[in-house]
Amino acid sequence: MTGIKEVAQKANVSIATVSRVLSKPETVANETIKKVLEVIEDLKYQPNAAARQLRMSETTTILVVVPDITNTFFSKVLRGIEAVAIKSGYQVLLGDAGNSIERENGYINILRQKKAAGMILLTAGVEASVVEEIAAQYPVVLACEYLEGVDVPTVSIDNISSARKATEHLIKLGHERIGFISGPMNSVLGRDRLTGFYQAMARYNLRVEPDLVQEGSFSYESGYNMMLKFLAYNTVPTAVFAANDEMAFGAINAIEQKGLTVPDDLSVIGFDDIQFASIFKPALTTISQPAFEIGTRAMKLLIGLMKKEEIRKTQYILENKLVLRDSCHKCIR
């Protein structure tokens, strides 16, 4: 029976190198991997099944990169991705960018090293040219976010119109002095939701007070801290639109810490409709994204790219809806 020693001799490498090819291929040059696998096939070495599994993992592992794993919105998107992936024989590798462009670039390098068959980016923090370059060589899909002017398959909602819808809801309740806690301005979601807010205020000829627009980070803490700033002004807003639910929760708790109540003293509206939004007290009025469908649609697109199928439609804008709950009230001031 052929042993690892014979494989190493014929491939003109060490036994340790053969072992690494089978167990830790990322530590071995691609040319060496190819040579060793060819010898394994020729000699019908017993761990041949392991070699096939190595190649299979290169074609069935999907890399999904999220901007921040602590943001619970992405859990539903991931479930949608996995539902399609598992049914189609793929496995999902999750990468948490931690809102770091450097880490996001690091995950992109995994695709360059061919350790994954394709990638779904739930964040678009890196330069558009980088995404365009990697998408020209490997299957890549953007979900939740998008990049202007980049021809990469994308699944998202219209964040501008949905933010406009949320703002108009507050205006129709009689609110005119409205605060806005945005996402980070280096994020397309942060910029788009701010644009929607400005559009709604302009449509109703309402003045946007610069002090009542504060940049958050999509975190609970930033919502809490920005709300404290609003409450420190001589005239506080009657309503606040937070660009995601996590920041809305922080804003509500800051309001209540100051002895005020939502919605009697201030109305608060969020964005995303994460699971906790319906059980938070008060239950949060918010914009609902079809998170699970975003995930399933993105994975189906990626499978099409990996199978080199013709992709006739590359941009999917899914429906969103305003979910009315208890955190908004008619303005009584």
Rank of each mutant, 00 (worst) to 15 (best):
I4G: 05
A11Y: 04
N12A: 14
A16C: 03
S23I: 03
E26K: 12
T27V: 06
V28I: 15
K34G: 01
V39G: 02
E41R: 11
L43D: 04
R52G: 11
S57A: 12
T60V: 10
P67H: 05
I69S: 11
F73Q: 00
F73C: 01
G80E: 07
S88L: 04
V92S: 05
D96E: 07
G98M: 10
S100A: 08
R103M: 03
R103A: 07
E104G: 07
Y107G: 08
N109I: 11
R112G: 15
R112P: 04
K114L: 12
M119G: 08
I120F: 07
V126E: 11
A128V: 12
A136V: 04
Q137C: 04
A143H: 09
E148Q: 15
E148K: 15
V152Y: 08
I160F: 02
S162I: 03
S162L: 05
A163N: 02
R164T: 11
A166V: 03
E168G: 01
H169M: 05
K172H: 13
E176N: 13
I178S: 09
G179Y: 07
F180L: 09
P184A: 13
N186Q: 15
S187C: 09
L189P: 03
D192I: 10
D192P: 01
L194R: 13
G196K: 06
M201Q: 08
R203G: 11
Y204D: 10
L206R: 04
L206Y: 07
R207A: 12
Q214I: 15
E215A: 09
G216Q: 07
G216S: 05
E221P: 00
Y233F: 15
N234R: 15
V236E: 06
T238W: 07
A242Q: 06
D245P: 01
D245M: 04
G250Q: 11
A254R: 08
E256I: 13
D273C: 07
I274T: 08
I274V: 12
A277C: 04
P290G: 09
G295V: 05
G295Y: 08
K307L: 13
R312Y: 14
T314G: 02
I317G: 00
L318S: 00
E319G: 02
N320T: 13
L322A: 08
R325D: 10
C331R: 10
C331D: 09
